[in-house]
Design a protein around this nucleic acid. Sequence first.
DNA 1: AATGAATGAGAGTTCATTCAT
DNA 2: GATGAATGAACTCTCATTCAT
Lengths: 189, 189, 189, 189
Amino acid sequence: MVDRTDKRDLILTAALGLFAERGFHGTAVPLLADEAGVGAGTIYRYFANKEAIVNALYLKWKWELGRAIMTDFPVSAPAREQFRHFWQKSASFACENPLAFKFLELHHHAPYLDKDARLLEDQVLAPAFQFFATTSANKITKPLSTELLGSLVWGALVGLVKSAWDGRIALTADVIDAAEQCCWEAIRA
Amino acid sequence: MVDRTDKRDLILTAALGLFAERGFHGTAVPLLADEAGVGAGTIYRYFANKEAIVNALYLKWKWELGRAIMTDFPVSAPAREQFRHFWQKSASFACENPLAFKFLELHHHAPYLDKDARLLEDQVLAPAFQFFATTSANKITKPLSTELLGSLVWGALVGLVKSAWDGRIALTADVIDAAEQCCWEAIRA
Amino acid sequence: MVDRTDKRDLILTAALGLFAERGFHGTAVPLLADEAGVGAGTIYRYFANKEAIVNALYLKWKWELGRAIMTDFPVSAPAREQFRHFWQKSASFACENPLAFKFLELHHHAPYLDKDARLLEDQVLAPAFQFFATTSANKITKPLSTELLGSLVWGALVGLVKSAWDGRIALTADVIDAAEQCCWEAIRA
Amino acid sequence: MVDRTDKRDLILTAALGLFAERGFHGTAVPLLADEAGVGAGTIYRYFANKEAIVNALYLKWKWELGRAIMTDFPVSAPAREQFRHFWQKSASFACENPLAFKFLELHHHAPYLDKDARLLEDQVLAPAFQFFATTSANKITKPLSTELLGSLVWGALVGLVKSAWDGRIALTADVIDAAEQCCWEAIRA
DNA sequence: AATGAATGAGAGTTCATTCAT
DNA sequence: GATGAATGAACTCTCATTCAT
């Protein structure tokens, strides 16, 4: 009993894996259909064209990432604990959704993303980055721009995750904690 | 008078820009030929096929990156100064060769890279990363694995550079210096 | 309460308009189903395949055309009046069933018409054309073959109607009458 | 030794036959390539897409038709002789280029024709039709509109030619002459 | 050595037809 | 009986590669 939503999800799930591993242009629609277990024509009942698939995926997972990061955010906790929240949630997201994390990294600012995806692109991490505006104002973190602090920390996280993909590091809780402490020290005043 | 080497370079230069902007599968060979100002057939006198081009590019620029990082390394200087060397040289490379830096990031671990490229892939930064083995042993940097420290720092640099591409940060000397200090504090004991 | 016949007619009516405007190969079955207000599968309960629809339409309207021309034919009237009958009935048919007239013209001798349709194709106008055999024998019309006189007159009518479609002529009664007189003078002895 | 122009002509020649027999939508590009004796991809070196082929054909043959009709037009001859010129030249064109004549008839006002083709569509016969403006003013032909007289005569010609295609009439010089006389009598005052 | 016209395999996409509901 | 989601063959078109010049 496969309903309409299930089939759309089958396609999106297969597309996530293929786009993450081979990229957008490297993934042929018939291959995607095979992986999803549907006919090639079926894909076009759910998506107007190939670009619509990559855009739907991008919106979906960027949104999921944003939700993951902001869920249970400790609004009144000290900055150090808030930072820990961001780091741990992001790392968890990357560990639990490795393909989605890879997909989002690989398709960042891709020319086939549409206006909606581009708008969402830079907005999802913005709330987390804004955290630095407050902490810098309070002299808890260094007196550097939000964008600078944010991109260093997010970049470090991405670097960590990529090393894990390459098998150079095992992403244990200890490693994630240690990396978190490193990054905190990078930015604290 | 265009000699053999010149034409090969024309092709590689055009390919660098196209692969960096559109990706490997998104770049058509006839377009590459146009950009390089050579005939489509000529490309196949210098490269066996399209994959050979991306591999040649990858080897060339990964090597250039390694060379840039190691050039004038201050062997006997204190660790902090050696770290500064790595950071500044890497940042300079990214600023001076933005297309190459983007290309290397985009094609990291791509499935069409051959054995040679894959081998070189993880080895180029290894010497720099090895720096951490010594400093950690001497309790100058944190007692964490070389790979962990290295990927955090390199990731932070990549994050910084990507922000600059997106126009969120201007890569001035001040910004690069400040980021360097952040990263040093991330890893120092 | 929609009975079997009604649904078949819905399909044929929609098909007439689409085939007349876009041609047989230019009309997609799902679009036809939409226009007819039935499910795509339903069409195949009434017709074996797409070709069966165009053939059914062709037979139906060719037959209607023949019936329209022969209805109330003044058997004992003078030749001029009989000619007037043919002309006016044909023109009326074209005015009242413009899509059917266009459809018949467009699909004349189309390769996807079956044997039945092909047989009927040339037979419907034959009775009207036969009129010329008698009038020519009686030296009322020119001593030319039935086929020649018939195709000139029918061609002139089609030319007139096409001009009306293109908006170059308004098919008023005056115009139709004047054209009739022209054609009579074309063929009279 | 096939040069660029030859190959374009091979494609246009094959397309003329196929479009005339099967229509635009009924002709698959690979079939067209086979008939032309070229690879499927080659077609797209000469034409942007399938529609460009049908438009090029339409322009070419509509132009040829116009040229055929106007060549050696007897400017100072009497109206009857001028009419004879139009009729005979048109009939000759239809006899010598049956596929082109069929193609032009079949694709008249087709939705895939572009602006250029549509503009030319109604202009080619216009000069011939304009002949009637003068003759009607001089009371040589009936006091009816140019469009009406023109569409009757052209329609009659098309009807004649179609009968010949269907094998009902042989287009001998006698038949063409007799038909000409019929049409002259249709329109003369 | 260099070219670019030519190619056909394969890309993205459509559609006549089927069949589970 | 009626449906429309699903299909895969076939469509239009692209492109990595070849080869006659």
